[in-house]
Computed example of a mutant assay.
Amino acid sequence: MVNFNEIWNKKTLVGLGLGQFLSLLITSTGFSSSELSRRGINAPTSQSMLNYVLLALIYGGIMIYRRQALKAKWYYYVLLGLVDVEANFLVVKAYQYTSITSVMLLDCWSIPSVIFLTWFFLKTKYRFRKFAGVAICVAGLVLVVFSDVHAAGRSSK
Rank of each mutant, 00 (worst) to 15 (best):
M1A: 10
V2Q: 08
V2T: 12
N3A: 07
N3Q: 09
F4L: 14
F4G: 00
N5W: 10
I7V: 15
W8T: 05
K10Y: 09
K10F: 12
L13G: 01
L13H: 00
L13F: 11
G15W: 10
G17V: 08
L18M: 15
Q20L: 15
L22C: 09
L22Q: 07
L25N: 07
I26F: 11
I26Q: 02
T27Y: 12
T27C: 12
S34Y: 07
E35N: 10
E35V: 15
L36N: 05
S37H: 12
I41R: 01
I41P: 01
A43T: 14
A43M: 01
P44T: 07
T45S: 10
Q47A: 09
S48H: 04
L50V: 14
N51C: 06
Y52I: 08
Y52Q: 05
V53S: 07
L55D: 05
L55A: 15
L57M: 11
L57R: 02
Y59Q: 03
G60H: 03
G60A: 05
G61P: 04
G61E: 04
I64H: 09
Y65M: 05
R67I: 04
R67G: 02
A69L: 08
W74H: 07
L80R: 03
G81Y: 05
G81R: 04
L82D: 00
D84M: 12
N88T: 13
L90N: 07
L90Y: 14
K93L: 15
Y95L: 03
Q96K: 04
Y97W: 10
S99E: 03
S99V: 02
I100S: 08
I100N: 02
L105W: 11
L106D: 02
L106M: 13
D107C: 09
C108V: 11
W109E: 04
S110E: 00
I111E: 06
P112N: 06
S113N: 06
S113I: 15
V114G: 03
F116N: 03
W119R: 14
W119Q: 12
F121N: 04
F121A: 10
T124R: 13
K125C: 03
R127Q: 12
R127T: 08
R129A: 11
K130V: 15
K130P: 00
A135N: 04
C137P: 00
V138W: 11
V138P: 00
G140T: 09
L141P: 01
V144C: 09
F146A: 11
A151C: 03
R154Y: 09
S156I: 14
K157N: 12
